[in-house]
Simulated scan of single mutants.
Amino acid sequence: MIEDEELVMSPLCQTLEKNHCAVEILIYKGISDENWVLELEDEFGNSSVWDDLFATDKAALNAALEAIDDEGIEAFIGEPSPESKPLTEEEYAIDLAERVTASLPMAVTPTKALIHNVRNHETQPVKLKPRQRLHVDKCVYLGDEAGIACCCIAAGEPIVSSITHLKLDPKHPLYKELKDYQLKRKARLAYEGLRNDGCFRVD
C-alpha cells in the first residue's frame, strides 16, 4: 500500500476468506484523487495491485470479487517471506548463539555437573570450584547432539562447555531466552536418553 501520502480508505475494505485462505481487499485513493485503487494483500504481506483505477469504490470491490471468483483466491496468495517463516530448532540455536556472541563477554558459574565432569576428565588439568566466576569469550553451535557451547577460560585453560552446564547471570539481556533454551534442551535430552558430559578440552 502507498504510505507516503495521506489516503482515504473506503468503508468497503474487508477481509475475504475462502478455502482456508484469506485476503484483505483494500480500496483507497489519495486525498486529492478522484479514482480508487484496488489492492489485495495476503497474510504474508504479498500484494496484488490493479493497474486500472476505478471511478467508485463499489466498482473496485466488484472487480476484486469477480477476480477471486474467476481465478480462485489461491491465485492471490504468495509465498511467505524468509522473515515470516518459523525457524527450525537448529536455525534458532544458531541464531541464539550468534546473538550471545554479539553480547559477549558473559559471566557464568559452573554447575555441579560441569565441576564433576572436569574433575573426572583425564586430560583436563583445571579444577573448578562452586560459584567460581567464569567469563565466556566465545559461543558456538556444535550441532544437534552438543547444542550451544560456550568457551570459558579457567586458570588460563580453555574449557568448552555445553551451555546447559553453566549457571547464567540473571542480569544478562538474553537470560530469559537462554534459560528457556537450557530447560527445553535438558528435557529433550532426558526424553531421548542422550548422554552429554557437557565438557570438552580445547588444545
Rank of each mutant, 00 (worst) to 15 (best):
V49Y: 06
D144A: 15
V37M: 15
D69P: 13
C152M: 09
E177F: 02
E98H: 04
E39D: 10
P86K: 02
N117V: 06
I27E: 05
K58N: 08
Q182L: 05
Q14D: 08
A155Y: 10
S47E: 06
I27F: 14
L189S: 05
I77M: 08
V8P: 15
K127D: 14
G72P: 07
E192S: 11
K184H: 14
S161F: 03
C139V: 13
L128N: 00
T109D: 02
P130C: 02
C150H: 13
H165F: 09
E90V: 01
I25S: 03
S47R: 11
A154L: 06
E43R: 12
I25G: 04
L142E: 15
L40G: 03
A67R: 13
A75F: 07
S103F: 06
L142Y: 14
D169K: 00
A97F: 00
A149F: 04
P130Y: 00
E24F: 12
N196W: 03
I27G: 07
A63K: 13
A60Q: 01
D169V: 00
T123H: 11
S161N: 05
P105Q: 03
L142C: 14
V118N: 03
E3V: 10
Y28N: 06
S103Y: 10
E122T: 14
G198L: 02
N120T: 08
A97D: 00
V126S: 07
L53H: 13
N62P: 12
E6W: 15
R99S: 00
V118Q: 02
I31H: 09
V126W: 02
P11E: 12
L61H: 07
D197Y: 12
D144Q: 08
E24D: 14
C139K: 05
D197H: 15
K138N: 11
L12V: 03
G30K: 04
C150Y: 15
E5G: 12
E145V: 10
M106V: 05
T101N: 10
H20C: 11
E43P: 12
L194Y: 13
A146P: 05
D52P: 15
R133E: 06
E192F: 13
V100T: 01
R188Q: 15
E71W: 10
G78C: 01
S161P: 05
P125V: 05
A155S: 14
T15A: 15
I68Y: 06
T111S: 07
T88N: 04
D169L: 00
K129D: 08
L194W: 11
F44I: 03
A63Y: 06
A102E: 10
S10D: 04
N117M: 11
Q124A: 13
M106I: 03
D51M: 07
L87C: 04
A155P: 08
T164F: 00
K176T: 12
M9C: 13
T111H: 04
E83S: 12
N46V: 01
A63Q: 15
D52I: 07
S48H: 12
A155Q: 14
I31E: 13
Q124P: 06
W50P: 11
E74S: 14
A187V: 07
V23K: 03
Y175T: 06
D69V: 11
K29N: 09
E34G: 12
E98T: 03
K129W: 14
P86N: 01
D42G: 03
P105V: 01
A60W: 01
I2Y: 10
P158L: 05
K85L: 12
E24H: 09
